[in-house]
Design a protein around this nucleic acid. Structure first.
Lengths: 349, 349
DNA sequence: GGTTAGCACTCGAGGGGTTTGAGTGCTAAC
DNA sequence: GTTAGCACTCAAACCCCTCGAGTGCTAACC
């Protein structure tokens, strides 16, 4: 698609623009990048690259700025070697912070987000663990008083969900225990998704003995299960964005910050790429959500038992050091997944 | 302290500045506020007010701007009548949104925050319910597997906290149940605070029969109880701030937004005023936290069973419509408390 | 034929000077 | 005590100019 020299010119421009945020002229390239040709030649190449859609000018006599298409090419052709270089100091800090006991899974992800923002100097995004694919390990009903029952669900990753609900009649304790036992037997090791499906088609009506009670209870269980599947979005380091010249302009800053505050949209975006394993990079125009058309989002997955259960990443102007950030995210991905899986080392019973 | 006319001039300036954000000149006052005196006279009054510390100039020949001291006086002398006028449409929306079932207490507060920001056009702040003063209604230990025990605590407001912890030996189920029963009996209707205190002085060692088991368990219970007392901060509508001319300047915006992202500091601030019942207004310099010295924070309480359990409010530039905002917050305070207490109407058992 | 030097041209950014107008403080008259 | 009048101040807006980093084109070069 591009001959070698064009390629190198384009790389040079991207590299330079990433660190300076200023349009790049031919002279700068010839001076600081060893391409062995004069500015005039570079000008010719630049002109071609512009025609091909890889470069833009801010005005007729300005230097060039990489387009989204250029970043795309840059990211797609990033060589592994370049990506792997991440500061050892950071690597250790990541391991340190993450392995520190954060009792709840949610909290682990939040901590990871905070650290990610601090390390990268970008705003971090993360969606809470998606547990619909994990299995139930324990389910229990407990009476709180005559009309209230507590439902507890523990899944294999150790996450607990509970709800109190009000009944319109009293179910004696021993009966609740019995129902618990039956439920436990029936639901154990099923995924939330499976349960939801089964509930929908009324598969549990077989407990004829407690039919009436169950009719009252099952909707609550369904609701609880559904609730577990609900997704939160964690963000951190919003102010980081304001350090970039791209957001000197208050209107621009406002637009991106409100976009980030619009959590539902972001959740949708992150979930969409949910199962594209590993790093996902969305550059500028590639974002379907209008207010993010001038941003890039880089995310990675975190896993439990080999299954992807969430994404974490960063957002910022399209001009970002993709190589370094991708490397950093890889480290995060590995470490988070490792910590999650270690949560339950003793849990095979 | 101030004669009537000075008072009225000051009010006029504050009123005008609140809506315009521009320094106010003597002519503006005499034209739009019916004080019955000429600009020259007002100039004299203004000069006096400046000397008294109620007004500032931005430069020698500029109009006047109210000082923090002026806002303080303004707020302290706000007449009730002025405060009570809040749009009926909003009042209904507040009631509507809040009374909609938000299953968890935390979520209710978050929703309230979101709405508050939307209504007021300021960034909202809220601290999660402080439960240390509420009483325990139910406590239970459940085995998950041979080495893991689930601890469940339900308090009177219906909030549930649970933790899974790993034991280094197995306690048979019937024994756990028995311990649960004893704990339940001993701890029921005590506040978290009381339990923490009692735990600290080792008051529960009397369960001699299960002494060994308890020694393993009590620390976890303590940890759980402590955990319940941990406080979150919810913010919403950060971008609202960027609409105010005070934050046109990126550096200013950055400084306030980072201050708001520094949740620990804000929690401390809100907790400090925790028990000053009703509305609390902190104006500019009155804030001990340096980065907020140019902001005002207005907060109110929300209650459970007559006890204050949290605060919710807004933050913005010192130039804000205190009268209207205080009125709005009052409505919030009442409605939130009402909804919280209704959660548990059937819970007297 | 690709590369390069040279040159005219473009355009945004920044500096300096002027004008404008909203404001003040002071003084003298009412 | 109040007010009209006036000299004075100062930020903001505007204009104009210069500067310099950049381009594209052309003609010469290897």
């Amino acid at each position: 698609m591009l001959d070698d020299r064009k390629f190198r010119v384009l790389y040079a421009i991207i590299d330079s623009y990433i660190s300076s945020a200023e349009p790049i002229g031919s002279r700068t390239i010839s001076k600081y990048y060893d391409l062995g040709v004069s500015p005039a030649t570079i000008r010719n190449e630049m002109s071609d690259l512009e025609e091909l859609g890889f470069l833009n000018k801010t005005h007729t006599s300005s230097g060039r700025v990489p387009s989204d298409k250029a970043y795309r090419l840059y990211v797609d052709t990033l060589v592994q070697s370049k990506v792997s270089a991440i500061d050892k100091k950071w690597k250790q800090e990541i391991q340190g912070v993450l392995s520190k006991e954060s009792k709840e899974l949610d909290q682990l992800i939040q901590n990871a987000g905070r650290l990610l923002s601090k390390i990268t100097n970008y705003t971090s995004l993360a969606i809470s663990p998606q547990l619909s694919e994990t299995k139930i390990r324990h389910i229990q009903l407990l009476p709180i008083d005559d009309y209230q029952v507590l439902l507890i669900i523990v899944n294999e990753s150790g996450v607990i969900k509970n709800t109190v609900f009000k009944m319109n009649r009293t179910i004696p304790e021993h009966q609740l225990t019995e129902i618990s036992n039956i439920l436990n037997e029936k639901l154990k090791n099923k995924t939330f998704q499976a349960i939801n499906r089964d509930l929908a088609i009324g598969i549990y009506n077989e407990f004829s003995k407690y039919k009436e009670d169950l009719e009252g209870l099952l909707p609550f269980i369904g609701k609880s299960v559904n609730n577990i599947e609900s997704t939160d979005l964690y963000t951190d380091g919003l102010t980081q964005l304001l350090n970039y010249p791209e957001y000197r302009d208050i209107e621009k800053a406002k637009s991106i910050i409100s976009a980030i505050e619009d959590k539902d949209q972001l959740i949708e975006i992150l979930q969409k790429g949910m199962f594209s394993s590993g790093i996902d990079v969305m550059i500028g125009e590639e974002n379907i959500y209008e207010p993010l058309r001038e941003c890039s989002i880089i995310t990675t997955t975190y896993k439990f038992n080999g299954e992807t259960i969430g994404r974490i990443g960063i957002i910022g102007p399209t001009r970002m050091d993709y190589a370094k950030l991708i490397a950093t995210l890889k480290v995060f991905s590995d470490n988070i997944s490792e910590v999650i899986n270690n949560y339950n080392l003793t849990d095979k019973g």
